Computed example of a mutant assay.
Amino acid sequence: MPAVPDVVEPAFRVLAGARDARALHPRGRWFEGTVSVTFDPALPLPTGVTDVVGRLSKGAGTPGGLPDVLGLAFRLPGPWDVLLSTSFARVLPLPARTWSSGRYGSISPFRWRGRLVWLAAVPDPNRAGSASLGDLPDELGFTLEVGGPWRPVGRLVARPLDVDRDLPALDPVRNRPPGLGLAPAVLTRARERAYRGSRRGRSPDPVTAPDA
């Protein structure tokens, strides 16, 4: 049987080239913050308080305050790049109207020690009035949960940045702890090709400023 041609990487390369930005989540703001985790064997999260850098972003890149599938990505030691998006019923991406009105989830589960585990970040209520990057408050707090069943395991505090910084490109497919898998395997292969196409299609990453 002939191999199925790879259409994912070329498609994402073309989209990234047309935008001269990431194919998905092209609009964003970097943040500094901390992750505080109590011991939980469900995932290899670092215990105690860990300094992190990350990015809050709009999945489709809708302008201004229009709703979008919002992204929350951050780098843990290892490195382990975690990417969460506003979602419904664990696996369905869901546009959110504000940065605090949606539940951020891993969409697809992790495979760790023979089990499938989801990770989520539940935002604290705040006064952000839209999905505009300019509406981000000075600080955002999230409760980190693993499931299922869902249970809290820690906190993430993010402080969005307004100035350019030399910050790392986040890639949850390439950067993860040894032994931690992404499921299902077919989706992992598709994501790997999508990230590769997006990297090859765009110029070196700028750190984007807040939109209006």
Rank of each mutant, 00 (worst) to 15 (best):
S36G: 09
P79S: 05
V82S: 14
D171I: 02
P79Q: 04
P79N: 10
D162P: 02
R199A: 07
P41I: 07
S100D: 15
G197A: 03
P77R: 09
A23E: 07
L70M: 05
A73K: 13
S130I: 02
V173T: 04
G33T: 04
L182P: 02
L144E: 12
V153Q: 06
S198I: 02
G201Y: 03
G105W: 01
R200S: 00
A128R: 10
T34P: 05
G65W: 05
A128P: 07
S57E: 04
F110G: 01
V35R: 06
P206R: 15
L92G: 02
F142Y: 11
D135N: 03
T34A: 07
L15A: 13
A23P: 07
I107D: 12
S203C: 04
L140M: 09
G179M: 10
L15Q: 09
T98N: 12
A209F: 14
R75Y: 04
R113G: 07
S36I: 01
D135H: 07
L116F: 05
R189M: 13
P123N: 06
G61W: 05
P93S: 13
T188M: 12
G105K: 07
P2V: 07
P168M: 03
V146D: 10
R27Y: 12
A60P: 09
T208G: 15
L24R: 13
D40S: 09
A42E: 10
G181S: 07
G154S: 00
S57A: 11
W118A: 05
P46A: 04
R200M: 00
S100N: 14
V207H: 05
V14Y: 11
V4R: 15
